[in-house]
Nucleic acid binder design. Structure first.
Lengths: 103, 103
DNA sequence: ACTATATTTCTAGAATATTGGAATTATCAT
DNA sequence: ATGATAATTCCAATATTCTAGAAATATAGT
């Protein structure tokens, strides 16, 4: 993962409302949640919610697919995993013992 | 980890410069790096660097310990791990098979 | 075509973050 | 005490983000 890309994703997750959205999506798995489902759970104005959703989509952390009038939001698990890996990449490396965690 | 706390940490990591600082610290392990080491590697004005460092410290992602004239910066690994766990907490739960990844 | 529901886009004011120069504090050596 | 190095705090300009009402778009049913 690119540094800029990782920073952007972290920044998007670093907002109370967006983190709440994202966790609801992660929890709901590949089936996702509709925008109205999210709005019902979060109780915020539609325009505000839409703004945050579009930022999450834009950063590649989630995707949307339309089903009739409803827009489903689904978390991108691979993107999340890549992000976590980027954070932990250099972690737990113990150069003084000559072993590292890289593959 | 508290939701607000997690959001704050993610937000702090969600900035190119701070993420760069943090990765250098993670890479350098428990020995850490001095502020001047960081400045030498990042090539930014001291006041700017200091501002970003103080945000990382304030969010609990790193600590500073003075050694003479030098201030060492050290990443807080447990905080990072907690954060990652918070992100993945509800992940990979597959209710239709009755198994989940929780310990 | 008309209506209702679902969601986004537009807009603008308020709030917050970013940046870096200048001044300041802290520590050590002479 | 003076000087040098290390780092922070203060300040102000600039930029970005957040919020939510109002208007617009999309889809489906009648």
């Amino acid at each position: 993962m690119e540094h800029q890309d990782a920073a952007k994703k972290l920044s998007e997750l670093g907002h109370t409302t967006r983190l709440a959205i994202y966790r609801l999506l992660v929890k709901s798995g590949p089936e996702g949640l509709s925008v109205s489902d999210l709005q019902a759970q979060l109780d915020i104005p539609g325009s505000t919610l839409s703004h945050h959703i579009s930022r999450l989509v834009n950063s590649g952390l989630m995707v949307q697919k339309r089903q009739g009038r409803v827009l489903l939001c689904v978390a991108c698990f691979p993107a999340l995993m890549d992000l976590v890996n980027y954070l932990l990449e250099e972690c737990c490396t113990t150069p003084d013992q000559g072993s590292n965690g890289k593959s």
